[in-house]
């Protein structure tokens, strides 16, 4: 270490300082680049570690259903909203389809709204699916897959229940059954 330190290249003094300033600027640039990269990676790491939305105010969205009705989550405050992500190509979704429809028929008059969000699906098959399972609650495509992205869903089906106060009350990753949801809805309605 000492050896190389004491033998700097024999160049003019002023030249060295110019060179050193350049070096310092270059080093600063490298540090900034590294820091920026690490910040981006850290943010992404944080986001992946978050998992699906679990509590608090759920991300707002507007959805246009297959029969051209429009729903905006923030306009629906005061109601209990059950948001269900599904797709016609998803087998577990079929397992919960009948239960969801039954829930809708039992609760639609009690200020509960079921919203089906159709993820990365094709319209023809989606409509077939809705008629096969005789689904009557509003359903619409997730255009641009933006809603599913904001909810950070990992797959379908996933179900989110928003309470009357607009806060997320419960989320289900994977298929639901009638009883699971019923318990949550009854608890919210009792309040």
């Amino acid at each position: 270490m000492a050896m190389s330190r004491t033998n700097p290249p024999k160049l003019g003094q002023s030249h060295i300082t110019v060179q050193q300033r350049k070096n310092r600027l270059g080093q600063l640039a490298v540090w900034i680049l590294l820091a920026a990269l690490l910040v981006f990676v850290a943010i992404k790491l944080f986001q992946t570690s978050l998992g699906p939305v679990r509590s608090g105010k759920p991300p707002d969205f507007t959805i246009t259903t297959f029969n051209d009705q429009t729903y905006t989550l923030s306009d629906l405050e005061g109601k209990i909203i059950v948001i269900n992500f599904w797709a016609s190509w998803c087998d577990p979704c079929k397992a919960e389809a009948a239960d969801l429809e039954m829930l809708w028929r039992d609760y639609k008059d009690k200020d509960v709204l079921l919203l089906g969000i159709d993820y990365a699906d094709t319209e023809k098959e989606a409509l077939d699916y809705l008629s096969t399972w005789d689904i009557t609650y509003p359903n619409g495509p997730d255009v641009g897959t933006t809603i599913s992205q904001s909810y950070r869903i990992r797959g379908v089906p996933e179900t989110y229940i928003v309470a009357q106060n607009g806060l997320l009350a419960k989320s289900f990753i994977g298929p639901i059954n009638y009883e699971n949801v019923e318990v949550v809805l009854e608890a919210l309605l009792d309040k």
Binding site: S88, W89, C90, A120, D121, T122, E123, K124, E125
Partner: peptide, 21 residues
């Protein structure tokens, strides 16, 4: 649904429907 696999090589039901579309 199947990230980083092109649609023509993917065998999932979702991709089959996409191709039909």
């Amino acid at each position: 649904v199947c990230e980083s696999i092109p649609l023509d090589a993917c065998g999932t039901q979702a991709c089959i429907q996409w191709r039909d579309t």
